[in-house]
Amino acid sequence: MNSKKIEFTVGLFVLAGLLCILYLAVSIGGSRFFGGDARVIEARFSNIGGLNPGSNVMIAGVKIGSVQSISLDEQSLVAVVQMKLDSTNIEVYDDAIASIRTNGLIGDKYIAFDPGASGIELEEDEPIVDTESALDIESLISRFAFGDIGGGEE
């Protein structure tokens, strides 16, 4: 085979290959290279049981971002969750609520996010403290078993 033809097929191969990688990364991998700004909001939970980095953040059941990192505040012993919101257009107020919910009975954990409506915007570095922690099925069952249900504080 002559070298011109080889050069052409190799060029075609590399081009198609780059498109493949791009498709994987952008479409399937969901990386937002061109997504513009994202906003990171911190929320503090007393128990995140089962939430992972990468878990979804949803408003009204629509995915609007994901959990970026989870760490422990070693002084107050609460879990600090960084949520990355893919849009900067969502107004977040200081009475915003983040709750950890479960998709079905044993499904993935996600954060149901309510941006609030107080009219006072959340400061840039201000964490969300009004949070609902993960529902602990085991303690729920034990409370039910010991007849404590109904007298709960929730």
Binding site: I21, L24, A25, S27, I28, G29, G30, S31, N56, K63
Partner: peptide, 15 residues
Amino acid sequence: RIFESVSGQNVADSM
């Protein structure tokens, strides 16, 4: 399910 679960990191690891 694919779009939700596969992250860019997974693709990068694969590469």
